[in-house]
């Protein structure tokens, strides 16, 4: 924990809405009065590649990226990507895993196999592991493209110092008018999941 804040790492696959999700977290923390920084790398046809976003908030934040072993919460949008960044977590860190599988090229081609029982592997190292089916939540919220907001809902339940109202107000300003309702619904379903 840095100055009363947290280090988070969002991980997943290009196109899953990770950058928007980390943007929303940052704006929530800003609204709550924290200093905040986030960092990711874009370019070079990231579509389909592994994507991460570091988010750090606290009284004063220097580095926009956390070092390995210093992440409080790993938020993984895809199961395999959870494994790739496990070494970033603190020993008492928590993991939120979206129960989604997206095959990398080597698996598609049959040259590699997609690891089995990823949640079990993660549980060997960490006590607090939350598995969530965000696609299912998104469908229930009325729009499959609200997966990232559903995951933010799950995360929000673990950040009890931040009022739900702040999340909602930031979400309202982060999406086009016509999809706000579904995103708020996905957030609330995620929060209760």
């Amino acid at each position: 924990m840095i100055n009363g804040g947290k280090n988070m790492l969002l991980a997943g696959v290009g196109g899953q809405g990770i950058l928007l999700a980390s943007e929303i977290i940052c704006k929530v923390m800003m609204t709550a009065g924290y200093d905040v920084k986030k960092s990711e790398v874009h370019g070079m046809a990231q579509r389909g590649g592994s994507v991460t976003s570091h988010v750090r908030y606290g009284k004063k934040v220097f580095s926009p990226i956390a070092r390995k072993g210093d992440i409080d919460i790993l938020i993984s949008f895809e199961k395999l990507e959870t494994l790739r960044y496990l070494d970033y977590l603190k020993s008492n860190g928590m993991v939120i895993i979206n129960d989604a599988e997206l095959y990398p090229p080597s698996v598609n081609l049959g040259d590699a196999t997609y690891p089995e029982d990823i949640p079990e592997t993660v549980r060997k190292y960490f006590e607090i592991v939350k598995i969530v089916n965000a696609s299912d939540i998104a469908v229930r919220a009325g729009n499959i493209r609200t997966v990232n907001t559903a995951i933010l809902g799950v995360l929000s339940a673990y950040l009890d110092t931040i009022e739900a109202g702040i999340w909602e107000s930031v979400i309202r300003t982060s999406f086009p008018e016509k999809v706000i309702k579904e995103n708020i619904a996905a957030f609330n379903l995620g929060r209760k999941a």
Partner: peptide
């Protein structure tokens, strides 16, 4: 001291390079 990091080499993690869309 950076602490004891998890040794990822014990896990089999297929790479996920960027690809043409």
């Amino acid at each position: 001291n950076n602490g004891n990091l998890i040794d990822l080499s014990q896990l089999t993690i297929p790479p996920r390079p960027p690809n043409l869309c």
